[in-house]
Amino acid sequence: MKISIVVTLKKEVLDPQGKVIQQTLQNMGEKAVFNVRQGKYFELDLNENNYEKAKIMAEEICKKLLANLVIEDYKIMDNS
């Protein structure tokens, strides 16, 4: 089954890229945008059909590799 994961910088950690993208959007006239956070998106294809089990595996994988827990959070997307 497919598991989708989004990794972003922790809320309290500076996101230089997000900041510049937000400023650029402002300059381009998108005045409503007051904050941007940038992240990474992963899709894992797993040999596992049970979503709950797959989620636990994904969780481990995030901790082990995908997210740098010093500065990043991960979110496993709901299966839809």
Partner: peptide
Amino acid sequence: KPTVQVGDPF
């Protein structure tokens, strides 16, 4: 860990 700062060279 949470005390580490992130650098923004730009």
